[in-house]
Simulated assay, not measured.
Amino acid sequence: MSPGRADAPLVVVADQDGFTPAVPPDWMRWLPFAYVAFVLVLEATLQQEWAVSFFLIALPPIAAYAFGPVAVAAFTVFAILLEGFLAGVSYHLWETHHVTADIATAVVGILSTALAAHRTRQERSLVHANSVAEALMRALLRPVPHQVGHVLAASLYRPSEAGTMVGGDLFDIRATRGGERAIIGDVRGKGLQAVHTVAALLGSFREAAYEAHDLPSVAARLERRLAAEARETQDEELFATAVLIEYDSLSHRVTVTNHGHVEPVLISCGEVRVLSGPPALPLGLGGLAETGAPAVWHHRFTRGDILLLVTDGLVEARDTDGDFYPLVNRLRHRFADRPAPGPADVINFLNSDLPRHTRNLHDDVAMLAIAPHGAVRPAQ
């Protein structure tokens, strides 16, 4: 897996304790110094009867936005000394209102130092929680190898929330005796409960992919697992959309069953088209179907073809005008009437093209591209 991250607003660096504190933007770190310069300019331009040094009472809380407790305490001491200097220049150092301002600055500084210490502890807690969640998602969405059995593969997971990898999208591919079997899906809901459901579905798929004799049997195993998950969590509305595929290298054919998910896209001989077939209900809602096994359909899949599976976070990404990401049109613009690309070419293109369409993702994006194993030339 090549996890593509949305651009994060904060840069993170690690300290000696393994903690990765958030480093604020440069303008926020320069703000206390700019504020001091502003006070000095006022002092030089206004008449002496203005007690401009009183503005320095605000310096410690301004510093607390971007600095740790030690630095905030240093800014507090600096503010008190500068107040004293400015008052001494005008021979008002020991007047009661200046002494009161110094005391007020000290009190505000103590509170700001405590606030900075609390913010640092909160950052540690959040970083730890995000690290655990990210490690869990990386364990679930294991890296997709360049080659899996008789297919080449590439994948991407792009979270909607900057700096996190917690979501309800899933994908996997396995080489089995029945052929190369893959899944891409999207669990209803978000957060840790969605991650729990993703773990259940992926675990069930990784067992069923090797044991089930055909694709409908794999889907049936996933249906039962999701139904059990719904009972355990007492969530009667729990479901997941998914596409399951199976590639037979002998017949050069791919079998597909679509459970309410985004339809696969085929890039073949310079053409890009959506592969449509009989729909099936999302996993978890199979009990509502009038027939038993979900419908499956087949399509020829030969050397040079690319099958792209995505989640709805990609096709529902909107630009500033509210228009959805035109997946098929963008693929046609890039790959139509050109030499056959590889799976990584398609994934890399979408990963770079999507941010041009939308700056803020409202849903996670997952992609999985596969191609029959054989020599393919990189896209020009």
Rank of each mutant, 00 (worst) to 15 (best):
D353L: 00
L136H: 00
S155P: 06
P145W: 06
R273W: 11
T197L: 05
D364Y: 08
P378T: 06
G18I: 05
P61V: 02
Y65A: 15
L350W: 07
W50F: 08
R225G: 12
E123S: 15
V52G: 04
G163K: 01
D102Y: 14
E83V: 12
L314W: 02
L309S: 05
Q380S: 12
A199F: 07
T76E: 08
G88C: 00
F54G: 08
S276F: 02
A289F: 09
V254T: 03
A51Q: 03
F38G: 07
A66N: 12
L281N: 11
T257G: 00
Q16I: 08
V13D: 12
S53Y: 10
A153S: 07
R377K: 11
R303V: 12
L281V: 13
V274R: 09
H92T: 06
G167T: 09
N258R: 06
L126F: 15
V376H: 09
P143T: 08
G313D: 09
E49Y: 14
R253P: 01
Y65H: 15
R356K: 07
F85K: 01
T96W: 10
G292C: 00
L202F: 00
G168S: 06
A209F: 12
A336E: 15
F33K: 00
G178A: 06
A289G: 11
S160V: 04
M165C: 07
M137K: 00
T176M: 04
H259W: 15
G203S: 03
S155W: 10
F239V: 09
I347Q: 04
L81M: 13
S352N: 10
L285M: 14
L215D: 02
T113D: 03
L226R: 04
D345G: 09
H373Q: 08
P326Y: 07
L136Y: 03
A200G: 01
G88P: 05
S160E: 09
R119L: 15
V376C: 03
E246K: 00
P264E: 13
L266H: 14
H97F: 06
F78L: 15
G277M: 05
